[in-house]
Design a protein around this nucleic acid. Sequence first.
DNA 1: TTCGTATATTCTGAACATCGAATATAGCAC
DNA 2: GTGCTATATTCGATGTTCAGAATATACGAA
Lengths: 113, 113
Amino acid sequence: MPDALRQFKADFFQALAHPTRIAIIEQLRDGELSAGTLIDRLKLEQANASQHLAVLRAKNIVTGRKSANQVFYSVRHPLIIEVLDVMRRYFHAHMRESVASLKALEKAGSGRR
Amino acid sequence: MPDALRQFKADFFQALAHPTRIAIIEQLRDGELSAGTLIDRLKLEQANASQHLAVLRAKNIVTGRKSANQVFYSVRHPLIIEVLDVMRRYFHAHMRESVASLKALEKAGSGRR
DNA sequence: TTCGTATATTCTGAACATCGAATATAGCAC
DNA sequence: GTGCTATATTCGATGTTCAGAATATACGAA
């Protein structure tokens, strides 16, 4: 794989590598929302929200549509939502694994005493 | 969504947010490889490779199987490969978009002169 | 035990990310 | 124009990530 492609992917992951930005994208899953609505729903500082939105904009993950003095944000491509969906499945699989190994530990512990 | 889940996702993305770590995972797509093989194929510094592998291990993205004095790494869950596959599709879609907007610019430019 | 190979860890300095506070800009109403 | 609301940007402090150098550990062979 060319290095540029790896860098592109890394940049994309970097842009998603923050709980607030993930929360923003999941809020936008069902359609556009104004910056103000995002701030209210996620209980963010105004400046902080704007910074995170700037990161998402810079990586073309999100676009802003200006209307009067509001800006309505939306996710630019459905595949971004799909990435998060796969992540959700991965999280569940990961949880199942963790629970399974905890149970195995319990069993080993009770057998040993 | 609970905050723990968002943090989990963010941590996962953070772990993938480096070109070298993406390269490592793509090398492991078809099965396990020793640390040394990864170092050779990706032309990495030994210490640097080990640090990146440590990051991937810490997030349970990769496991190491020790055999004699080598360590064979493999991706812990197929869904991780799937995330990268969706990313690849996203990348292609993104490229198409960029090419399209470049063409639009050219057209506008030639029309204007 | 000592040697050699494979891998991991620790340290240091540079680069980058994050936050909140303050400030700036843009658009509408008056 | 002034004032108000929504959003963006800049600044400074603090923390995190990175690469490479040096060092440490684990293992098998002799």
